[in-house]
Structures are given as C-alpha cells and as structure tokens.
C-alpha cells in the first residue's frame, strides 16, 4: 500500500510545517519597569502557589498538489495548573505542571483520526522557567506518548505537543510607549529535523488595561521570521523552508507578576521537500490562533 500518497503526505508535511511555525517565531522577549517610568517585569511563583490556565490552539493547514487543495484542521484545548516548587541554583522557577484537561483533534483527510489522549489528564511533569518566562526545561520522566497515527509522524512525546505556556518577558526596564526590536536565531528539534528559526520581533508596550480584574500591561509583539530545516523523519529526508508572520498580544499583571492572557495569530507559507526515494515538493500554508488565559 502506498503509505505516503498525496493526502497522507500532506498530513505529514503540514504537521511538520505547523511544528516549525509554532516553534520559533513567537515573542521571546518582552518588557520592563513601572508602567509609566519604567519597570522590570518578572514572574513570581511562590512555593506551593498555583496558577491555572486554559489554552486553546486552532490550526488550519492547506496544501496543494496539481491544483487540488487539501485542508487539515487541528485543535488542542488544555487546562493546566502550574504549582511552584522552589527555585534552582540559577534562580529559575521549578514547578509541577499538571494537565487538568486535554483534548486534541485532527480532521480533514480520510484516514485521519484524532489521537487517543486519555493518558494526559491528571498527568504531571516538571516545568522549569526563568523569571522572564523563558522555558528552561519541560521534563517528563514518564514520557507520555501521543500516537498521532502513522500518517502523521507516529507516536510523539507529550512534551512536543506543548508549544505555548507562559509568555516571555523582557530583561530590560521598559515603560508604556516603549518600542524595541529583538532579532534572534535558534535551532530546535522538530520531527527529526534541525529547524533554524530566525525572527525579528517589534515589541510595543501599548497601554495599561484591566483584564479579568487585573491591572495589566498590554504588550504587542509583531514578528516576521523564517524557518529552515532539514533532517530525517520516518525514513525520509526532509527539507523545509518557510516564512512566518505572527502577531501576539500579552496581558501581564505587573503587580501580581503573572500572565493573565496571551493571544497569538500566526500565518506561515512554507515548502516541504521530501528527497530521496519518495521525491516530493509540497507547498503548505498554516494559519493558527493560540489563546492562553488565566483561570484562577
């Protein structure tokens, strides 16, 4: 049987494109200071303190072969609780990340099935993040796996499914009205590929706004970037190239030192090349919306 036909291939390559698109082009730095005079922004999570968030990701991926279009819709809804467990020697927060609820759906192509995620609710892993919200580590000693099906990369660790948790904040002191630009390049591992994410983000602290009863700084981040990757997945040599545009709005409660809400919309156009015996070049467009909101 042809395992990777046009449609099954489209699932795989759009999955790769999605993973790459989400991995590198969100805001990675943020703001600092007293809202008017300037202040340093940082998270605070005391030992035993818990923050519960709901997170929703919807993604639509489109690909085209010989003028025929295929669409795949993916959704992920998570409710998770972060509970402080202290700090490490470098001042990073160590926390227990518990999945209170988790659903993941995929549809659009015959043969595609939403994965079984019944092992996830109640599962706990270790989440270490810097005071500025940078993810230091997401450790899952039990290595919960989610089987996306043979069409879509097979079993993947749960940690690879968790794309967005807390927004990153700037190290420098910033105030309302400040605009600054951050360029960055990093390499991530996605589905067997080394993916180089290069991005330039323009940040603006737009205003102060009350959200869900919290006085928040509204931080706008507009990112343009590229993704370039190559590697091997399921025995196939893959190369990906893409351009990504992302707009993210973060609401950060500067007094309580916690993120209240983050909304991010992303658009990427990419090309995935499968070289070697399965020789195929496929264009992919990915549009996604991510919302993370404090529940309690």
């Amino acid at each position: 049987m042809k395992k990777i036909n046009l449609r099954t291939m489209s699932i795989l390559v759009t999955g790769i494109a999605l993973a790459a698109a989400l991995s590198g082009c969100g805001p990675k730095n943020g703001i600092v200071g007293d809202p008017v005079k300037g202040m340093a922004l940082a998270y605070s999570l005391g030992e035993g303190q818990s923050l519960t968030y709901s997170s929703s990701i919807t993604t639509t991926m489109n690909t085209e072969q010989m003028g025929q279009a295929f669409t795949i819709d993916q959704g992920q809804d998570i409710e998770f609780t972060i509970t402080g467990q202290g700090k490490d020697s470098e001042g990073n927060y160590i926390s227990a990340l518990k999945f209170d609820a988790y659903t993941q759906t995929m549809e659009g192509v015959p043969g595609m099935q939403s994965p079984d995620v019944s092992d996830v609710p109640g599962h706990v892993m270790e989440y270490i993040f810097s005071p500025q919200g940078k993810r230091i580590a997401l450790n899952d000693p039990d290595t919960v796996m989610i089987d996306l099906g043979q069409m879509n990369g097979g079993p993947q660790p749960l940690t690879a499914m968790i794309q967005v948790l807390l927004a990153s904040l700037p190290k420098d002191v910033k105030k309302i009205g400040d605009t600054w630009t951050d360029t960055r390049q990093d390499t991530t591992q996605r589905m067997g590929m080394d993916v180089i994410n290069s991005s330039e983000t323009t940040y603006t602290i737009e205003t102060e706004e009350t959200v869900n009863g919290y006085k928040c700084l509204k931080i706008l981040a507009e990112t343009t970037g590229t993704i370039d990757g190559s590697g091997e997945t399921q025995g196939m040599q893959l190369t990906i190239e893409g351009d990504v545009e992302t707009t993210t709005t973060v609401y950060f409660a500067y007094m309580e030192q916690k993120m209240v809400k983050q909304v991010s919309e992303s658009f990427s156009e990419s090309t995935v090349v499968v070289s070697g015996p399965v020789n195929m070049t496929q264009p992919v467009v990915t549009e996604s919306k991510i919302t993370v909101e404090l529940v309690k």
Partner: peptide, 15 residues
Amino acid sequence: PNSWPSLLRNPPEDA
C-alpha cells in the same frame, strides 16, 4: 504555491 525545490534558499541536492 511553490513545488520547485530549486527555489528554496537551501535546496537539497537530490530533490
């Protein structure tokens, strides 16, 4: 929509 590998920034040689 681009399906020409040679138009990539770093096209794989055998594609």
